[in-house]
Amino acid sequence: LKKVVALYDYMPMNANDLQLRKGDEYFILEESNLPWWRARDKNGQEGYIPSNYVTEAE
């Protein structure tokens, strides 16, 4: 899975979204639905995130 790091905080707009915290790492599960990607956080929560809020992890 592709790993990304959040560049900004993101508060979910609806139940399908995943909250982002700046500096945290996330795994990308699906990239087909631009600009929204399906992601999983370190706690196993899954949801959609804005792809322009993250960058690929080193």
Rank of each mutant, 00 (worst) to 15 (best):
D41C: 04
G44E: 04
D9L: 02
L7K: 07
K2C: 07
E46F: 04
Y26I: 05
I49A: 02
L1W: 13
E56S: 13
K2D: 02
L20T: 02
S51Q: 10
G44A: 04
E58H: 12
Y26N: 00
L20I: 05
R38F: 15
T55H: 08
D9K: 02
M11F: 14
K22H: 06
T55D: 05
Y8W: 12
I49F: 06
K3V: 12
V54R: 00
N14Y: 12
K3N: 04
Y26S: 00
P35D: 15
Q19E: 14
D24C: 12
A15K: 13
L20K: 00
L1Y: 10
P35A: 15
F27P: 00
W37E: 03
K22S: 07
G47Y: 02
A6C: 04
G44P: 00
E46W: 07
Y10W: 14
D17P: 02
A6H: 01
P50C: 13
G47V: 01
P35Q: 15
G23T: 03
F27R: 04
G47A: 01
E25W: 14
A15D: 12
S51A: 14
E31C: 13
K22E: 06
Y26E: 00
G44R: 04
Y8P: 00
D24S: 08
R40Y: 07
T55N: 06
E46H: 04
N33I: 08
A6Y: 01
K2P: 05
V4S: 02
M11R: 08
A39Q: 00
Y10D: 01
K42G: 09
R21K: 13
I28E: 00
G23H: 04
L1R: 07
L29A: 03
S32K: 08
E56G: 10
K42V: 10
E30L: 06
K3T: 09
G47Q: 00
R38E: 05
V4D: 00
E25K: 07
Y53I: 05
V4L: 04
S32N: 12
N33Y: 10
V4Y: 08
K2A: 04
N52P: 05
E31H: 11
G23N: 05
M11T: 13
E30C: 11
K22L: 06
L1M: 11
P35E: 15
Y8K: 12
P50S: 05
L7V: 07
D24H: 14
N52A: 14
V5I: 14
F27C: 08
Q45A: 12
L18N: 00
E31F: 11
D17H: 15
N33R: 09
N33G: 10
R21L: 10
N16C: 15
D24N: 07
P35V: 15
K3R: 13
D24R: 06
A15R: 10
A39D: 01
N43I: 07
M11H: 12
E58C: 13
E58N: 13
G47S: 01
K22T: 07
K2Y: 09
N52V: 09
P50R: 07
L1I: 11
L34T: 14
D41L: 02
Y8E: 08
Y48F: 12
K42M: 14
Q19G: 10
P50D: 06
D17R: 08
E31K: 10
S51W: 14
A15W: 11
V54H: 01
E25Y: 15
Y10G: 01
D17L: 11
W37R: 04
V4R: 03
Y10T: 03
L34K: 13
K42I: 10
R21N: 10
A6G: 02
V4F: 07
V4P: 00
K2F: 08
S32P: 08
L7A: 04
E56P: 13
L29S: 03
D9A: 04
D24L: 08
V4M: 08
N14R: 13
D24T: 06
K22W: 05
A15Y: 11
K22D: 02
M13G: 09
Y48G: 03
D9S: 05
R40N: 03
Y53R: 05
P12S: 06
T55W: 08
K2S: 04
K2M: 08
E31I: 11
V5R: 08
Y8M: 12
M13Q: 14
N33L: 11
L20S: 00
E30W: 11
S32T: 12
N52R: 10
M11V: 12
L7H: 04
Y10C: 04
S32W: 09
N33F: 08
E58Y: 13
L18T: 01
Y26M: 02
Y53W: 06
V54F: 04
I49T: 01
S51P: 06
E25V: 15
R40P: 01
N14L: 08
Q45R: 14
I49Y: 01
Y53Q: 05
R38A: 06
E25L: 14
N33C: 15
R40Q: 08
I49P: 00
S51F: 14
G23R: 03
R38S: 07
L7S: 04
K2Q: 05
Y48M: 13
N52W: 15
P12K: 06
T55M: 12
Y8G: 05
V5H: 05
M11W: 14
M13D: 09
A57S: 12
W36V: 13
R38Y: 15
Q45S: 10
P50V: 03
P35I: 15
A39K: 00
G47W: 01
P12F: 02
E25M: 14
V54W: 02
R40E: 05
F27W: 15
R38H: 09
R40L: 11
D9C: 05
V5C: 06
P12C: 05
N16F: 12
K3C: 09
D24Q: 12
E30F: 08
E56L: 13
K42R: 11
V5A: 03
P35S: 15
K42W: 06
T55L: 10
K42F: 07
M13T: 13
K42S: 11
K22M: 09
E31G: 09
R21F: 13
P50G: 03
I49D: 00
D41W: 01
D17C: 14
E58S: 14
M13I: 14
I49Q: 00
V5S: 04
W37Q: 06
R38D: 03
L34H: 15
K2E: 02
P50A: 04
Y53S: 06
N14S: 12
N14E: 07
A39H: 00
L34N: 15
L20V: 04
N16I: 08
E46Y: 05
E30M: 07
R40A: 08
N33W: 07
L34M: 11
A15V: 12
L34Y: 15
Y26C: 02
L29R: 03
A39N: 00
D9Y: 03
A57P: 12
I28L: 09
K22Y: 05
W37A: 05
T55K: 13
Y10P: 00
P12M: 03
D17E: 15
Q45C: 13
M11A: 13
A15L: 10
D24I: 06
D17K: 08
S51T: 07
Q45L: 12
G23W: 05
Q45P: 02
E25S: 10
L1K: 06
Y48Q: 07
R38C: 10
M13W: 07
K42L: 10
P35L: 15
E58F: 13
E30T: 07
N43C: 13
E25H: 14
K3W: 08
L20P: 00
E56N: 11
A15F: 10
Y10M: 04
D24Y: 08
G47P: 00
R40V: 12
A57L: 14
M13A: 11
E31W: 12
E30I: 06
V5F: 08
D17Y: 15
G47N: 00
D17F: 15
L1F: 11
A15C: 12
S51D: 03
S32D: 09
K3A: 05
Q45T: 11
S32C: 13
M11L: 14
L20N: 00
P12W: 02
Y53A: 09
A57H: 10
R40H: 04
Y8Q: 12
N33T: 14
N33S: 13
R21S: 08
N16A: 11
E31P: 07
Q45M: 13
L7F: 04
D9W: 03
I49C: 02
V54P: 01
N43M: 12
A6P: 01
E31R: 09
E46A: 05
V54A: 02
N43G: 08
E30K: 06
V4K: 03
L1E: 06
N43S: 12
R38K: 15
P35T: 15
